[in-house]
Amino acid sequence: MLHIVNKSPLQNGALDSCLRMAKAGSQVLLIEDAVYAATAGNACEGKIRAAMQNLQVFVLGPDLAARGLSDRVIEGVSSVDYGGFVELTIANPNCQSWL
C-alpha cells in the first residue's frame, strides 16, 4: 500500500498516524507540507529514520524545492517528481491519503 501524507509533522498528527498504521513493507510518500518531515535536522528525523527500517520513504521533489530544502533530504529518503508519484500509485495495489 502507498501511504500519502501532506501535513507538517510538527503541526499535525497525520504522519504519526500513518507510521503507526502502515504495514511493514509499505511505501510512504511525503508531499506538500509533509516534505518537512524528510529533512535532516527536523525534530522528527529520528522518527523517519526508525520508520525506514520497515518502510520505504519517498518525498516529492518539486514540493521540497519550492520550500528551499532540496539539499537537506535525510539519507535513504528517495526524491521523486510527479511522474514518480504516478509510478508509486501504480506499483502499489492501493493507496491512502492521510488527510
Partner: peptide, 10 residues
C-alpha cells in the same frame, strides 16, 4: 486497511 481496493480518508 491493506486488503482494501479503495480507501477514502476524511
Amino acid at each position: 486497511m491493506d486488503q482494501q481496493d479503495v480507501v477514502l480518508s476524511f
